[in-house]
Structure formats: structure tokens, C-alpha cells
């Protein structure tokens, strides 16, 4: 299965078995999250699902680990700003 998914509205190609994170790296994208307090860029750190640094939003659901999420055609992948949960502001 190969194809493309959207990252912040731009098409990103992937090949069979790639994760979202791997496909983004292969396309030259290195960061896809902005930290909560200092608005710093973040991307892959551990790459194996442990550190929760590579979070992004997939099809509207935040906190998805790019290093574990399999790429699939038509995904709507977006940069996650902060917690990605502005819907839960107190």
C-alpha cells in the first residue's frame, strides 16, 4: 500500500509499512508539534513509542504518536499546537 496523506494540507507520499513519522522525515519534515509553554518545535525523539514527543493530530484526534501511527491514504495529519485539547480549557 502506497499513497499520500495530507500534512497541514500538503500531500506527503508514503510506502507500505511506513509510519506517519517515517514518511514525514522522508519528505524532509522534521517537526510537527509546538510545545505548550515555550512554543518550541518537536518531532521524533525516541522513535519507538516511549517518549510521547512526536505527537500530532490525525483526523482531528490529538496526541497521536507519529512514530507508531501507520501511514494510510487520505489521513488528515496536522501539526499539534500545545496539548491539542483547547476544547478542554477550564
Amino acid at each position: 500500500m502506497t499513497g499520500t496523506f495530507a500534512f497541514d494540507g500538503r500531500p506527503v507520499p508514503f510506502t507500505e509499512g511506513q509510519t506517519v513519522g517515517a514518511a514525514l522525515l522522508a519528505s524532509g519534515v522534521y517537526s510537527w508539534r509546538r510545545t505548550r509553554r515555550r512554543d518550541r518545535p518537536r518531532g521524533l525523539f525516541c522513535g519507538i513509542g516511549v517518549c510521547f514527543d512526536c505527537l500530532l493530530t490525525v483526523d482531528g484526534v490529538p496526541d497521536q504518536r507519529a512514530c507508531l501511527r501507520p501511514a494510510a491514504p487520505g489521513l488528515d495529519v496536522r501539526t499539534q499546537i500545545g496539548t491539542g485539547r483547547d476544547d478542554l480549557v477550564g
Binding site: F52, P62, D63, G82, T83, R85, D86, L88, V89, G90
Partner: peptide, 10 residues
């Protein structure tokens, strides 16, 4: 859990 915005649970 994953971090939530400040004030979500007080």
C-alpha cells in the same frame, strides 16, 4: 494521562 490545558481539572 496526556497533558491537558491548565484548568481542565482544578
Amino acid at each position: 494521562t496526556a497533558p491537558l490545558p491548565e484548568g481542565a481539572i482544578r
